[in-house]
Design a protein around this nucleic acid. Structure first.
Lengths: 145, 145
DNA sequence: CTTAATGCAAACCGTTTGCATAGAT
DNA sequence: ATCTATGCAAACGGTTTGCATTAAG
């Protein structure tokens, strides 16, 4: 109940009605921690836990959450989006090309340089995304073939 | 003829047969300079110049070119890919969210830091992409509304 | 002549939308 | 009671694929 209240507050603040799909999806994103999930991931979890929630609803809810700044959507190099709770902290991503795992990082120096670059080019920066692709340590060591 | 020979060399080096669609598409990419083009952009140009080349062929050729390192594919924040000739120079992108214009830049410091970040995280970096989104100068000044 | 490349149309896949129904306030 | 949210299925847009035809080596 306590957990749900927290979510209700989040939803209220976002000006969204408290509905079961929205609560469940928020809950899944919260328990996901820093794992980045696709709409299908979330849908699968819902189905597996017996909830009868449509994929379209998952997409709609995620889009609303994005608009309400509750979640952030990322487009990595493939053709589908992944979502994570918006912690308010900007960060960039290290994406493992083997297992798809995502690590977060920030680098103040890089941030600063980015601003400089945008400024010099006469761009009013609205956003930026930096993704480093590579093979994570576990995948390197387990690549026995 | 001279122009075509240059392209033939490129294609030969890539181990690809010299065909009309491939030559035309290479030519379009060459004349595009640093403009980044989508498959549809290229298709449209082909159609408009009277060539009877299918969209599927454009996609196939671009994918082959990418595999042969003749072109680079980028996924900006929308859902379709853009292509540019692979000059061999790594560079990052400033993307205007108003007009879609793309400017290229490089920053040695950022590059260096990225390597450090990957190293520290135990990632064997294979690639990285940095996109700065914003409003370009022309769009800022022409935004009269 | 042999094998690879093309054009067309249909398939695909992630995502969005229209509409009638169910649910929140 | 009102108005928004949901589920379903159909639509969508960019991209890929199967297959018969055409062209390169």
């Amino acid at each position: 109940m306590v957990k749900l209240n927290v979510q209700n507050t989040d939803l209220k603040k976002a000006g969204l009605k408290i509905t079961l799909p929205r609560m469940k999806i928020l809950q899944i994103l919260e328990t996901a921690g820093d794992r980045h999930m696709s709409a299908e991931d979330i849908y699968r979890i819902l189905i597996e836990s017996g909830d009868d929630i449509g994929l379209a609803t998952v997409y709609r809810v995620l889009t609303q959450f994005e608009e309400s700044k509750l979640v952030v959507r990322h487009h990595f190099s493939d053709n589908h989006s992944v979502f994570e709770l918006d912690t308010g902290f900007h960060h960039d991503h290290l994406v493992c090309v083997e297992c798809g795992d995502v690590k977060e990082f920030t680098d103040a120096l890089i941030e600063k340089r980015q601003c400089k670059v945008a400024e010099k080019a006469g761009f009013a920066m609205t956003d930026h995304s930096l993704n480093i692709y590579g093979v994570c340590h576990p995948c390197q060591t387990s690549a026995v073939l």
